[in-house]
Each structure stands twice: as structure tokens, then as C-alpha cells.
Design a protein around this nucleic acid. Sequence first.
RNA 1: GGGCCAGUAGCUCAGUUGGUUAGAGCAGGGCACUCAUAAUGCCUUGGUCGCGGGUUCAAGUCCUGCCUGGCCUACCA
Length: 678
Amino acid sequence: MSPRRILVTSALPYANGPIHIGHLVEYIQTDIWVRFQKMMGNRCVYVCADDTHGTAIMIRARQEGRSEEALIAAMQEAHERDFAAFDIQFDNYGSTHSDENRQLCARFWQALRQQDLIVQRDVEQLFDPEAETFLADRFVRGTCPQCQATNQPGDNCSKCGSTYRPAELIDPRSTLSGAAPELRSAPHLFVQLEKLRDFLADWVANSGALQSETANYLAGHFLKDELRDWDISRPAPYFGFEIPDSPGNYWYVWFDAPIGYVASTQQWCQRNGESLEDWWQSDETEIHHFIGKDITYFHTLFWPGMLKAMGWSLPTKVHIHGFLTVDGEKMSKSTGTLVTAETYLQRLDPAYLRYFYATKLTPRVEDMDLGLEEFAEKVNSDLVGKVVNLASRTAKFAGKLGLSPEYPDDGGLFAQAAEAGDRIAEAYEECDYARAMRLIMELADRANPYVEHARPWELRKDPERQQELQDVCTVALNLFRQLAIYLAPVLPRLAQQCGELLGEPITRWQQSRTPLVGTPVAPFKHMLKRVQIEDLQQMIEDSKEQDTPEESTPAFADSDQPLKDEPLAEEITIDDFAKVDLRVARVVAAEHVPEANKLLKLTLSLGGEERRQVFAGIKAAYEPEQLVGRMVVMVANLKPRKMRFGLSEGMVAAAGPGKSEVFLLGIDDGAQPGQRVH
RNA sequence: GGGCCAGUAGCUCAGUUGGUUAGAGCAGGGCACUCAUAAUGCCUUGGUCGCGGGUUCAAGUCCUGCCUGGCCUACCA
């Protein structure tokens, strides 16, 4: 069979944050598949890129006081570093902010124009006059027009569940500046997807590119009704590519992101003297996308539509996976389960995660749970106890002797395992890594009893039986090598170590068919440490601390100094306390007071139109910019006091001795401006 | 509300086109071994296969109703 030509992609990580263990499900899943294909002798190219455009990047760059280019460059470096650390091996890792991508976007655009798929329409959208930008739904909050709940997001109400457009919100506020947004109209460009309905419906149902559940889902949700036009442009300012024939408008980030797959391929082609046509316009090439279920419709409707308009190859298969949970819960910062790649690597070996994910991954769109105990058990029993143990219990006996010149009788173990290679390969091919791992562990379960019964530790004491000893080690080490070959897509480092131990690198699946004989055996080196459950727990703790970097109180050995400095006040009744009306407030504006040494002028919102101007003595501890948008607790019924700089209509609650050591009271997520503190 | 998927030993799961006393790994118990990263081997305790009907000579496996959980999505595919 001639080698297949396969192009593989993973979804492009957004340049707005670091890689975490949830992202890694996909990159590990894809990398395993790619490594497997390469071992099978297929031509397989794995491309990816950073997804760099959009409002979120623009805003963040602005907040951090640097250019978008500087932000995405730093993020890309971090992403690539994390991927490399997890042995995720791209053939090319590009960026959507590249010349190649800009040019390809123009080509796709031209094709869509030529097919008469683009139409222009005015869209009314909220505009932040202070930040001078149009606001995506999630950057607007206000009062729900249905139930009057305050501080609701721009698209739907979390209280009553009703949906609306951001412009319908009562008293909308920009979360960027706190300013009241204005409704502005601007022309937008749309792709008329409905014109491609026949093609899409057929592709979804009959191409074989989609799992059946996904095909059903699309048929039921999107293809049931008329396909809505896809708003594909954004007016300036926007970080992205300006549309050549529509000055002042930019391609929406989801237009140029999938084209980034092509741009990344092109970079690879240029470097390797290949032609892009061979990879994107050839029936000889398979195209496999690996994505998460959250971006299903971009890859199963819009993207095939775009490719169709270009007349290019359609995806051979879109592999969709579910989300990651940790100990049965959604990942979250507060519980420390949102673990970044970096935090993981401080304590744990990437091989653990690769193997654990492999034992859990199936071709279905199912969520996957990472149970901490299960994680440790699987890694320790399977990899250390069964697989690596085979080598570590025999390699040093074989060190002096090397492997036997001919492969000895092993009761058929090697032949059986060689035969199992086909079934294991099939499981990898189908992305059923869970099955592949089970099959491999079955082999490992047969190998250890062999060693047990052969008793090499007794043989080595008898000079007459050195030949037998060598034979036993030859069998054990060859069985180990077979396992290392089968696990190589998942555990490339183990494969490499095995290659070093036995003097022949592992590169091809076929190597599992023939035992190694007559070669020297290198001194055994530790291959994989056991996982300590404490390391996992510590990793979770580390992830929590990232959330509140100031708080590092491992033993809670707090000083008694603050109480000495300011002893407790005399007892009061609850009625006394009730006189103080503490309220949650949002800082909607903050500015320096030029004449004042210690004061900042804050504008606090109590929800609705209620605003208070408060002067707070926190200048040395806080910059005005970092306060805007955050929640504070204020004394709302304090008698207003006239100050030199104006009227102060309350007090912001804060702790600390003063100067730069002032700490504002915050409040947990969910609280709303105007709520009283009881 | 609708759709999809799942519900098999304490835990994670296998169970092929329905066919003899339902399996594995881990965990638990006992014994053995000491080469190995408190690793390994042997033996062993655990299951009314979510519940109730039905089809069949025969159902964990097919049909149906219900219950529970997860995901998706909303006023009905």
C-alpha cells in the first residue's frame, strides 16, 4: 500500500491567554495521531498557528500599554514553549497575523465575491465613545429589558434567561470604560450561507467527515431553518486585516482563523520545497481537523462553505472532542482546577498527562474527566509497575551479556504481541486511544509473569546458566521494546529511552514485528518516576495561588501585629451596626486629583443611574486604571463631606496601615452594584 | 420543553452479527518472591448487567415505557 498523504490541524489557540490542561486534550490527541501516522510510514504534516485577531486582543494590548504585535509575539512564544514541553511536535506553527494569511484571506475573499456570496447591510451596534470602539456583546452589561435584573451581559439574561440584542439593554454600560455606549450604525459584510445550503446539507449527511451525532446535531439545529447570513466584517478600530475592497472594515477573526490552517501549510511548503496545491487542492491528500465541540459549526458549516467557494478540498474528517473536567467538576480558577501547562510542568512529567489522556480518549464527542487519584493510579500501575518495570528488572542482568544472537523460545509471546499490532494500529487510526491502551496493557500483563517464572535473579547466580539468563533478558527486553513501540505515539520519550537502551532508535511501527538480537544493552537509566499524589495536590494549590498572587499563607502563621497596632473597638449591638449602610459599588471612573497627595477621585455606581463621587486615600496603592470596572464596598449613608477638591459622598472600605499598604475590600463574583452588605 | 449519549463488581471500563456458569485493570483479602521505582507473581472476595414490560428456544446484547446522570439546545428538528 502506498503511503497516504495527510494534512492535520488542531484548532488555533487564542493569543489571549496561556495554554492549560483543557487545551492540551486536543493537542495531545492530535499529536498522538500524527506521530502514529508518521510511524506507519505515511506522509503526514501537522500544522497549527496562534489565533491573534479580534477585539479581545486589541483591548488587552491597550490595557497592558503595548502594541498588539508585542502582545501576540509574547503569547506565541509562551504557547510554543508549552507545546514543546509537552512533546507536541508541529511541522509548522504559524500565526494568523502573517503575510501568508493576509494574502490567502484575500484569495478566499475574492472567491466569495465572485460566487456572489457577499452582501452588505448596515448593523446597529453599541459603540463606546471613550474607548472609541464598537463593543462585542460580552463587553456590554446592563439591565435586562425583561426582568429588570441589573448587570446582565449583552446577549442574554442570566436571571430570567431571555435573549435580546445588546442595544435593548436598559442603561447599558461598557465594561471597558464604564461609559454609556451609543448606538451607532455601520456597514457590515455578510456571507450568504443559505446559497450553499444544498451543498452543505449533502456534505454534512453524506461526506463521512462527521461523527453521526454531529451530523444529526447540525441537521437539527442549523440546517433545519434557513441558514443565517454570517457577519464576517468588523468596522475599525479592529485588530486584524483590513478588507481590500472595503476600506475601514476588517475581516472578523473567525474568517481569518481557519484560513490560518492554510497559511501555516504554506509556510511549511515554502520551507520544504512543496506546493500548496498538493495539500489543499488534491484528491490524493486527506485533511483532518481536530477541534473541540464548542467550535463545531465554524468547522462544519462556514469552513466547508469557504473551501467550496474556493473550489478546494473539503475536510476528510473533522474529529470533535469534548471538554475536560477535573475530579468531576468544570475547571475553574477558584478551585485550582484550571491548571496551566506551566504550572503542571513545575511538578509533573508531561508523559503522565499524555498517557492519561490516551487512556480516556475515544472517537466520541464526550467530555473527559481527570480524576486526580485515577490519574496517579493509572500512571503508576500501568506505566511504572507494568511497562517500565519490565526493563528495569532485567536490563542490568543483560548489561554484560547483551542480547542473545538468536531470539529464544518465549512460548509465543513475542509473536502474539506482534500480531496484536494490527489491532492496536486500527484503534489509533480510529482515534480510539482508550482501546489501544487497553490492548497494550493486556500485552504488558502477559510479559511480567514470564519474567516471574523464568527467575533471572536465580539464573545469574549460577555460572552454568548464563546462556539461559541472557535468553530470558532477551525475551523480556524485546517484549518491553514492543510495548515502547506501541506506546511511542503517546510516549515519545520512552521510545527514545528504549532506543538508547537497546541501541536502535524506534521510528517505525513495523519494528514491533522483528525482535532485536545480538546487540549490546546500555546501562539502565531510570525512565519514569512514580507520581506522588502530593505533587498533584500541590499543583492544584499552585493553580489557586495564581488567582490571588498576594496571598501566600501556607501555614496561616499570621502575625499579631495588626491587632496590637489597632486594638478591637468596644462592643456594639446589631442595631448599631445596621446604622452603617454598606453597599456593593462598581468603580466606573477613577482619576488622579492633581493637587492631592493621597487621594484618588472615584465615581462609584450603585446600579441604575445612581452615582457617587468619593475621594479615597488610596493613591499610593492603586492606579486609577486598575480600579475601573472593579467592585468595591462603600459606606453609602455617610454624611457627604465637602473637601477642598469637591464633595465626597461616601467612603470606600479598605484595610491596612496606610500609604502603599492599603487593600480595598472586594466581593466574590456574582454580587451586583447596589446590594447591601449585611 | 426538545435532541443526543450513557447507566455492567467499591473505582475506571471491556463485552463482537442475541447463544453455554458475565470479563479486565485498579482497589480489598490471603500467600509467595526479592531482580525491579514499597515494584512483581499466584490465589481470592465483590455484579438481581438502572427499573418494569415485550420479542425469542435463548437478551447485558433487540423493541417499548419509566428512572437517573451528562452534554447540546431552546419554546418545539
